[in-house]
Design a binder for these strands. Structure first.
Length: 494
RNA sequence: CGCGGGGUGGAGCAGUCUGGUUAGCUCGGAUGGCUCAUAACCAUCAGGUCGUAGGUUCAAAUCCUACCCCCGCAACCA
């Protein structure tokens, strides 16, 4: 058996609507997973939801229910999105799973040598029953917008995790690449951030101010705060510590996170792992944010884009296509309905869809659907694989489209329809035509192979159409034109 | 001097580390060709002071200096 691989995604807070940022996590992880599986690796792929905390408890009370019943409903929103994207995950963890809760307690105990009691001081809103960051307090002028009251500076006793103890080890692991941070500039950014050392982190709250969470072992007055509970999911989902199977998968090969939470995954989380005596993840992939028309998505602006809507209107492969190719894997990207639809119509419909269509059309028309001997596609895939290894998925897809274009050029160049006219006049025309069309099919099949990680449905359709040596007609065309957010140029010209 | 990223034809980007053929690609625009195909495809053309000002060099988008502008971050925000 080949080495077992493991990839993780961040677990979103179950209170809230899934948005495009979450979708990106799942998509990137899924592309990598499918790519590795295509190369015969065993891949475990985790997704999940973070289900503890005050916001959930408060919301549940508001709705006249209890927190557990509430999250039992809301986590489904994420599960729906994940499935809709076609993410081939193997594990869905919820932080309210009994096994997770038990494991977190054990983890707490194992980390005992690095846990101490201290005072947490910060701006607190009695209405929210929660602390806000200094930044937030300053931005709002010291007044909570929801409750129209001043934040109070209060301090309370809770437990701290001595992350600072691991500063040097973590710095070293990052610098020497044992724990690789991708992209490189994020690595620099993070090393700069921790140059004066990691800060110790508050990992619990008094029970009176945080009711919904994992109880701290041996201290009924304290409940675990988010970090330890949530981050631990990456190993508890594998069965840590009681099911030894976790050792087959840990350390993770890649942990996919958004750039905003890189610091927790590159600092606190590795510190926890070192405290447990566990190896660090091999690679952390920090992707960027998706703006809309150059503007940050926000609830107050109401300019958020719903991934479900995109998938429902254009299909899952169209979604996967745009977000893998037109959103840079390692940097911020931009979405507008216009650019999305344009990419769909020109690249998926005109370039790829039409190429498949014209090849199947000619084979059906000239050769009654018989393809004959299909040669291996001969395009050099070095750049593609290199881009995949570097986690630059956008560049890998670019490479595939180079092939699509050159196939269209090839067809234009050899003009199969001209050759067809020579049949009966020229003795070699028939075999020449067969050869040309089979070559085109070979190219399409190679394109299909390369699209497996990105557009699984499309790849599958291409294979089914051609692989038997005889055209298998499929219902409908590949990527029919869609004009929902832009105008059809052919209806406005009159 | 807080840290990081960036400013290249209408839009989005590559090229900068390792200076050197006519600054490359996609979309958009114009013209032409073709007709197998989803009024698709193919070809050609138009369009750029490579943020600004200096400097180094036979030669700079690419190296050096100064400055301007934009974006993100500035730690418990799940």
């Amino acid at each position: 058996m080949d080495k077992k691989l493991y990839i993780t995604t961040a677990i979103p807070y179950a209170n809230g609507a899934p948005h495009i940022g979450h979708a990106l996590d799942y998509l990137l992880a899924d592309i990598w997973t499918r790519y590795q599986k295509q190369n015969d690796h065993d891949v475990r792929f985790q997704v999940g939801t973070d289900e503890h905390g005050n916001k959930i408890a408060t919301k549940a009370i508001e709705l006249g229910t209890d927190p557990q019943s509430y999250v039992d409903k809301t986590y489904v929103n994420f599960e729906t999105l994940i499935k809709k994207i076609g993410a081939s995950y193997t594990d869905f963890i919820r932080t309210t799973d009994p096994h997770h809760i038990n494991s977190v307690k054990i983890i707490w105990q194992k980390l005992q040598p690095y846990i101490y009691k201290g005072n947490y001081e910060g701006w607190y809103c009695a209405g929210c029953e929660a602390f806000v960051t200094d930044k937030e307090a300053t931005a709002s002028g010291g007044i909570c917008a929801d409750h129209q009251q001043h934040y109070q500076k209060i301090s309370e006793e809770n437990y701290y995790f001595k992350a600072s103890a691991f500063t040097d080890d973590i710095k070293q692991a990052i610098s020497n690449g044992d724990m690789q941070i991708v992209p490189e500039f994020r690595k620099k950014e993070f090393l700069e951030l921790i140059k004066d050392g990691l800060q110790d982190v508050s990992i619990s709250r008094p029970k009176k101010s945080l009711s919904w969470g994992v109880p701290v072992p041996d201290d009924p007055e304290q409940v675990m705060y988010v970090w330890l509970d949530a981050l631990a999911n990456y190993i508890t989902v594998l069965g840590y510590p009681d099911n030894p199977e976790w050792q087959l998968y840990w350390p993770a090969d890649i942990q996919v996170v958004g750039k905003d939470i890189l610091r927790f995954h590159a600092g606190l989380w590795p510190a926890m792992l070192l405290g447990l005596g566990l190896p660090l993840p091999k690679k952390i992939l920090a992707h960027g944010f998706i703006n809309v028309g150059g503007i940050k998505q926000s609830k107050s602006l109401g300019n958020g884009v719903d991934p479900i809507q995109i998938i429902d209107e254009y299909g899952v492969d169209a979604f996967r296509y745009f977000f893998s190719r037109h959103i840079p894997t390692l940097d911020d990207g931009d979405f507008t309905w216009e650019t999305f639809e344009n990419a769909y119509n020109t690249e998926l419909a005109n370039d790829l869809g039409n190429a498949v269509q014209r090849v199947t059309g000619m084979i059906t028309r000239y050769q009654s659907g018989v393809i004959g001997e299909i040669p291996q596609g001969e395009h050099d895939m070095g750049t593609y694989h290199k881009s995949m290894e570097n986690l630059e998925f956008d560049k890998a897809v670019d490479e595939v489209w180079l092939m699509v274009r050159s196939l269209n050029q090839y067809i234009e160049h050899v003009k199969p329809w001209e050759i067809a006219k020579q049949i009966g006049k020229d003795a070699e025309a028939e075999s020449h035509l067969t050869e040309v069309l089979a070559y085109a099919v070979g190219a399409l099949l190679q394109i299909g192979d390369l699209l497996v990680p990105f557009l699984p449905d499309t790849a599958d359709r291409i294979h089914r159409t051609f692989e038997t040596g005889r055209i298998v007609p499929l219902e409908g065309v590949f990527f029919p034109k869609i004009y929902k957010h832009t105008t059809d140029p052919h209806t406005t010209k009159d």
